[in-house]
Nucleic acid binder design. Structure first.
Lengths: 218, 218
DNA sequence: TCAAAAGTGTTCCGAATACACCCATGA
DNA sequence: TCATGGGTGTATTCGGAACACTTTTGA
């Protein structure tokens, strides 16, 4: 298997999304070489022989950034001929959701549109990741991955609104969120806010696993 | 890019599904070599340098079978370490829907369960393809890819029932199917059936593209 | 006392579901 | 004439959507 004909090389690129002050933010780096010098790129690189896609993402993010999402999801393979002028590389785009409350809010995080134009086909990847997240959030409890361990219902709602890019009715949202039974109500409340402090909740994976139907919070 | 460290090799494997007499059928071949000699395998193989995943699927199916689906969808990359004992290969599983009415109904088509055990991780791939199809059919007009150009509403319903693995109410189904406005009613009817001949329909892509919401036929 | 977000129920409407009989045809 | 699938409407139920005011807190 080592001396056959030339084969495509396999890479991974990470679409990292987090909650900014005004909607979702995407993490990018700046290209430091040609081609696409100075343009925005997703963090990524070639996959090594004995690692999985997820392990590759983790290694590359450790090299290039200071954070890791809880998990990665495959967005899909980007395989167009000529997508990388340096050679024949097929890249598996991976979606990672990051809690930005604590993470270093450096200039690497910006709204998707603020990064244009992006190098290679990375803009396509980012858009695919975004629309995957939009589809996912309707039937899987993924919004929690964007938040900290403890969160208020208001924060959870803002996460949904950021992903769906539309406002959500507060009362309907709260009723349905609580009726999923996967929110563990804490006695603790917010601190240091200039208004009434909201009750905090924790996401309870065990109880979330029980339901089989769509995760209809919206 | 030609003399760097060893990299994983990229392959494609096709999960081909078609409508059998009793539910969905899967196409498989028999392994003719070790490992997994004589077990069922999905048609697939290594990707060449200058081809896309879809082009690779088409080439491999032309070599190994007598039919091609209208299009392929990516199911996902299967990347577990050790999934192929012959070497480090990562495979992109691809879903293809085939109209079996005309295609050569050879022994390559059987219900999914009839193929067990399957070689490599191909059983996982097949199950992933099936559940992808189940998810897809609820909001995209994919059932038509399993049928011929012209079909009766009964056939369409049986396609849905096969994919969803549950019966569907006839009157509700017909009402909703017709209300999608993507069915072009023909004057033509079935021929040679031992009962009342059903009206035939054609799928109208143009009209299907207009709707944005979920394709709720079920 | 003001600003800002938390918290709380009810009504309405549309979509999904359940359900049974007659019709046309070829064998 | 019988067996087989084609073809047709209505009533009910459930879930989603719309909607406004009071409460709490820190500044």
């Amino acid at each position: 298997m080592s001396s056959g004909p030339q084969r495509p090389t396999l890479a991974v690129d990470c679409v990292l999304l987090g909650l900014g002050d005004e909607g979702l933010n995407l993490f990018c780096l700046r290209r430091e070489d040609e081609p696409y010098l100075d343009q925005a790129v997703l963090p990524g690189g070639l996959l090594r022989l004995e690692e999985t896609l997820e392990q590759g993402c983790e290694r590359l993010l450790r090299e290039k950034t200071g954070f890791l999402p809880a998990r990665f999801r495959q967005i899909g393979a980007f395989d167009a001929l000529g997508r990388d002028p340096r050679g024949r590389v097929i890249s598996s785009a991976m979606l990672g959701l990051v809690n930005l409350e604590a993470a270093d809010r450096d200039a690497g995080w910006r709204p998707l549109d603020a990064w244009k134009p992006m190098a290679f086909d990375h803009e396509k990847m980012a858009r695919a990741g975004l629309s995957m997240l939009k589809a996912l959030i309707a039937y899987q409890p993924v919004a929690f991955e964007l938040l900290g361990d403890k969160f208020s219902l208001g924060q959870l709602q803002r996460a949904y609104e950021a992903v769906l890019e539309r406002p959500v009715d507060k009362r309907n949202f709260r009723r349905r969120a609580l009726s999923t039974n996967c929110l563990q109500s804490l006695t603790e409340h917010e601190k240091g806010v200039p208004h009434r402090a909201a009750r905090l909740y924790r996401f309870d994976k065990r109880r979330a696993g029980l339901k089989s139907g769509p995760f209809t919070l919206v």
